[in-house]
Design a protein around this nucleic acid. Structure first.
Lengths: 253, 253
DNA sequence: TCCCAAAAGCGAACATAAACGAAAAAATCC
DNA sequence: GGATTTTTTCGTTTATGTTCGCTTTTGGGA
């Protein structure tokens, strides 16, 4: 595990915990204190973190700004994707909505759907769909993650295993040109995999920026999902691959 | 640019409470008075706080309505009960908080507790405690009830069964003079019973108005809980009964 | 009201242990 | 086999606890 892998993880941990310690990170990654110090110094220089004796904290007032930023970013294309995705979901069925800003946008578009049963591990989605009185909302158990209101952990997976969904809507952190769906957080990978396994149809919602990123953990191949909703034509050979796999691709907007 | 992990937390507490004391902070963080004094001096030099004898207050410019609000609300018996209840809960333990406005008030008072693991079936409580970064929040699964943000159903009970809590805080709809704890909602009764069974100590929080009400479903007898927190002397023969049962009674305010 | 004394709070100075950064050495990756 | 990353080493800096003398607050009593 090298620098490039650690630093995003450190940020993620910092956002989850509010603070990180040199010692704790060193143990977590199995490296020396010195290495962590260098990482923290670099992250502090990039204004991603604020250095304190013994560790680092989130920059003052930045607790959830990144999240809010991401939420409002790419709003128009995100909205178009959300519309297209919601259009795939008929009324009167059972749906799982995963963690992620894209899936939250989908939830917003599902406010007019009638007679849904929605299961989610995202507190924000539960808060959104509380306004749709024609929709039964079920929240999975799990440890609450401060950064994005997600519920994660074994409890989450155990709950999901008790259901079989007509549709699942999932997001991701990055996508590879060979069709692999990737995520930063290893915890979330297990959840996403379980969701796909428990669903008759699965919809991956991901905008084009996910193709220019990378992430360490692999959720699945696009082959495993029934539909991919995105905002621009898939790059490289992916359209052909998806056609071969029978994975439907919807380009919204 | 803060020097220690403590300073951002001190600011947060100051903003919430309107003031902080040297002694209180020293105890909260487990450091000496001198260390806190140094922190406060630095924060004062950075104009983040204003130093006073025995502690610090918010700078005069940052007039905090919240504090005045809180002071007037202090009179409210619900807050007094919440305070008394939170005082019963030590730091570093596992706590369950049930559905109810009284338990939400307790959650508010637990914002300063450190190193807690809080499990709840109340989305509002999860939203409150998301601000306590020293507290791990776990949400039970369940069907979301629109009226009060509660999570109910078999999923909830199944989740609770997976834990053993040091403390449980429960509310109720009504109490009988013979010491029976009652609720309107039959679904919630099962949850409350399970919580009591899974907890080493259980605290019932209920104001005096609950004695003039009645409700159809029986949760348990006060005999089954370790402590009752209320705002007025218990009516009738109940004090004696509780004494016989070994149920501690705390009258707050 | 004023004054005084006890008590509480304060800050400076010092000792110590933890944390830090620089630089050389070792390991790892292309 | 050269470049990058990580570990090791070591002298320096920083944070914290302790002690002690000083200042402010507080609560009588004249």
């Amino acid at each position: 595990m090298s620098q490039t892998f650690r630093q995003p993880d450190i940020l993620k941990i910092a956002q989850r915990e509010g603070k990180v310690t040199v010692e704790g990170l060193a143990e977590h990654f199995g490296v020396t204190l010195q290495t962590i110090r260098r990482d923290l110094t670099e992250l502090a220089e990039a204004n991603k973190l604020e250095r304190v004796h013994g560790g680092a904290i989130l920059p003052s007032g930045t607790t959830n700004i990144q999240y809010e930023e991401r939420r409002t970013l790419n709003q128009s294309s995100k909205l178009a994707m959300a519309r297209a995705c919601a259009a795939q979901i008929p009324e009167g069925c059972s749906v799982f909505l995963n963690i992620g800003t894209s899936t939250e946008a989908v939830a917003q578009e599902l406010l007019d759907h009638r007679d849904l049963m929605v299961v989610t591990n995202n507190m924000n989605i539960a808060n959104i769909l509380i306004d749709n009185s024609d929709c039964q909302v079920i929240v999975t158990g799990g440890a609450l993650r401060r950064s994005d209101g997600g519920l994660v952990g074994t409890l989450t997976i155990d709950t999901i295993r008790q259901f079989k969904f007509d549709y699942a809507v999932i997001g991701c952190s990055a996508m590879d040109e060979d069709g692999d769906i990737l995520d930063f957080d290893i915890q979330e990978v297990g959840v996403s995999q379980t969701i796909i396994a428990q669903s008759r149809n699965s919809l991956l919602v991901a905008d084009h920026s996910k193709f220019s990123r990378t992430a360490p953990a692999r959720i699945a191949s696009m082959r495993a999902v029934s539909t991919v909703v995105t905002d621009k034509r898939l790059p490289g050979n992916l359209p052909q691959l998806c056609a071969d796999w029978g994975t439907k691709v919807i380009v919204a907007g």
